[in-house]
Design a protein around this nucleic acid. Sequence first.
RNA 1: GCGGGCUUAGCUCAGUUGGUUAGAGCGUCGGGUUGUGGUCCCGAAGGUCGUGGGUUCGAGACCCAUAGCUCGCCCCA
Length: 438
Amino acid sequence: MALSTQPYKGARDFYPEDKRLQKYMFNIMRRVSERFGYEEYDAPVLEPLELYLAKTGEEIVNEQTYTFEDRGGRKVAIRPEMTPTVSRMVAGKRQELAYPLRWYSIPNLWRYERPQRGRLREHWQLNVDIFGVDNLLAEAEIIQVADGILKQFGATHDMYTVRVNSRKLMDFIFKEYLHLDGVQIHMVSKLIDRMHKTARETFVAEVDAVFSPTQRDAGASNKLIGLLKTKTIEHLPEVIRQSSPALELKELLHVLHEARIPNAKFDISIMRGFDYYTGVVFEIFDENPDNNRSMLGGGRYDGLVGLFGVQPLPTVGFGFGDVTLQNFLTGHNLMPAIRPETDVYVALIGNVYTEAQKIIDDMREMGANVAVDVTGAKPDKQIKTAVKKGIHYVMFIGEKELKEEQYEIKNLITGASERHSAARIVSIVKDYRGDIRE
RNA sequence: GCGGGCUUAGCUCAGUUGGUUAGAGCGUCGGGUUGUGGUCCCGAAGGUCGUGGGUUCGAGACCCAUAGCUCGCCCCA
């Protein structure tokens, strides 16, 4: 029985052509995050299981986390998300860090579940968090980073929407406005979370079933159904519209619109699954009709750092998965063809390796990425190899070139061929590399 | 955890109501003489038809089981 060449279920191999795309995506994520002053951190893939038991959500720990026991009998989890880890790290140096703290990371995360479109078992997720700001400018900045990344990929505002809501607002509605108890709030939250996936009649019936007869008679159920149709804060009932969470959301949207994010809007159905969110929550939706789904989400979680026994710290952050990003980019034709890092493929003609090596060394020292064909194959074979690898230039080195110190450089895309000094060739290929990588 | 679809060459797929040695395109490899790719021409390799049972004179086609892939559901980082 031969060994399988398939990667583990729900995980991906990154062949060089795949890795190039990943590097392209990560580079843009890094560049934009750093442009906003965020610093990169990292942490182990393994964490003690307890880290997730406290604050994440039961099913995620019980059923969707990879766990095992190490040789010392410790319960270990493969991280399913980064937020607890970064909270742990910040708490560990709570007193000595300079706030506001701006951190980002691109960890790989694991979750045990059936893979489906946009959701695999292993994925990479950009995490961007700001610690130590308790006003809405933190939310605004975090959303600007997310928006800035999408723009840097070439996305335009008609391709996606930023949808914001607030846990505090929903709390106000559930408790003050509708007088729901804890169990009802939980049930209603879950229903709202998948409102757009549910047929309207079914949804109304399910919501209705949560309310007691007395509440229904008082019109609470209909009030909620009505509220959920609301598309803007202005259209909310007076008492809700004047609540402080609503005023805060309105202000946030104003700031975002001023920051040239016109596609930010209020969406009462944005709930987010995690219990740890305490304020504003938001998601960015792909508006591609074929892939209309949330591709990025986040919010304020002011309670997490304090769980580690240190003074609490207000925090806002988001996570952006590589799989959903790639679906977005592909769906909108924003994924460029990326060539390999190799700038030049050297075809040797005749037995000239030793002398050619000196030229090639010089070129490498000058900063060109140069691969040499050492097969001794005929020139046409060597060219074919370069074409197949996707390398842009072939350089020929033979007796004639070595004597004249002028080497033929051939552009495999245009077919054009020129003769230059090695230094000039380095300059040409580096210019080309600069053009496509920037 | 639940449900649907799929599985034939490296890839994308044909394969009639069950009937001899299993097909195409692309790709791969070789050739078309001297130091130049993509086009064109010629040739070759490559498949226990996902796996295990069953029905049948006969199964890639039918039945059962199982695995993998995939799309949903649940849940959502």
